[in-house]
Write a protein that binds this DNA or RNA. Structure first.
Lengths: 235, 235
DNA sequence: GCGACTGTATTGGTCGGACCACCTCGCTGG
DNA sequence: CCAGCGAGGTGGTCCGACCAATACAGTCGC
């Protein structure tokens, strides 16, 4: 009896609106950077209220697919790795216990590969940037500053690997709050010296353009934290 | 003049609400599985309207952090890898061009490692499950069915690796629509036979509990698709 | 003529209330 | 004791109004 071609009626209207917009982007009807119709128009087009449409837009906003500019309009993001993988940080921030170890394991795998790729491809300019953060990291005692340069150190290396997607994932796995949470206890145990040695080893491998050495050094670096955390949880 | 300690006034009220709830979970004030106050109560607690609160809840729902049950209440999910990494599929679905190659590269790295781990750890029961899908995959000509068993084949292997987080990421990287999009063209070029050989090689390595062979076979398997896609884009 | 300014229309952000759909659970009656 | 029912609670949807930031055109002053 219901021959209405526009109403399959599955799930909430908001959920359907999210899928519709996602589909429009996937099919290429909405290009990156393009501006969408206004919330009011979109609501009319999809036959739903503005409230529901706003929920759908908000959902796609937090996913990094859309971007709302107050007073201007709603735009499709560039759909680059960084935009879409920002939510990866949420995973890292909310994970606890055994899952933290699993996340570090994933990071070890990706970071070691990224560092190996970087060793083969890194340019002098990129290497100079890496060295800048390495030097700054060793020149201060402020934990906050150390952490910041530590993050930048690895970020530059990931960028030099030439895979933006991988770099974005690693960025999420190394989110500020995540590292701060895990590293606080780790560094308190006097791991500064060891960390410096490991960073120096990674740097040497990059300078020598030696992928295998870089892979091993990076794996050992992350593995150290991984093992420490495993021991913490194991009791 | 404004000495109100609860209003730093940065960003939209909805965004602040999202952060507040995330913080409550991160600090352990909200446990996995626990039920939240009602939307109306939460809105009052945070001093915002129900509309804004609903947007915040919707945002956390699509991120896999919260789950809303109509007529019952809002609950914190188990915060397991699967819940939180479901959004990873969105990334895969909306990525195009060079980013697809990058995603496959990430998958190759993780899948080869996961397969190597599985080779060392897989149990007879898990191996039987893998074989079931391998057999079913080779016994039909229906592309849909082949794809389904192909996905299940790799899913079982990822599960046997013992790292749920890695399995969840691989699940996202192999989402149905993603594989369907990429594999359609690939399989049209008569790659069935090669795919079968590669699956057989992976299976042999699992049976032999040979991690290195498993790693190589899996890397080659994903690498084949990766190279094909690279050629498609480059030429 | 040209740039800075202003004011107005547009657009996202917030709010409050109303009603609907679904679930839960206690009450009722057999 | 249990099946069935009904009221209350809760999320889902809709509406209309107003606020706040932006964009743009028209205006003013130099």
């Amino acid at each position: 009896m219901n021959v209405d071609e526009t109403a399959p009626q599955k799930g909430t209207v908001t959920q359907r609106a999210i899928e519709r917009i996602k589909a429009m982007i996937a099919e290429g009807r909405l290009e990156p950077g393009q501006r969408l119709p206004t919330e009011r128009d979109l609501a009319v087009q999809l036959g739903i209220s503005r409230s529901s449409m706003r929920e759908a837009i908000r959902a796609l906003t937090v996913l990094g697919v859309l971007e709302a500019r107050h007073g201007s309009g709603i735009y499709v993001t560039q759909l680059e790795a960084g935009d879409l993988l920002e939510t990866f940080g949420v995973v890292a921030d909310l994970s606890r216990g055994p899952r933290l170890v699993e996340l570090l394991e994933v990071r070890r795998i990706l970071e070691s590969t990224a560092t190996a790729l970087a060793a083969a491809r890194i340019t002098p300019d990129q290497l100079a940037e890496v060295e800048k953060h390495l030097t700054a990291m060793n020149a201060t005692d402020d934990p906050e500053e150390i952490l910041a340069h530590d993050l930048a150190f690895h970020r530059e290396i990931a960028a030099a690997a030439g895979n933006e997607t991988m770099a974005a994932i690693l960025e999420g796995l190394s989110s500020r709050t995540f590292r701060a949470r895990v590293w606080r206890g780790y560094q308190e145990e006097g791991a500064f010296a060891r960390t410096r040695r490991e960073h120096a080893a990674i740097h040497r491998a990059l300078v020598a353009h030696d992928p295998e050495a870089a892979r091993a050094a990076a794996a050992a670096h992350v593995g150290e934290v991984e093992e420490w955390l495993r021991a913490q949880l194991g009791g």
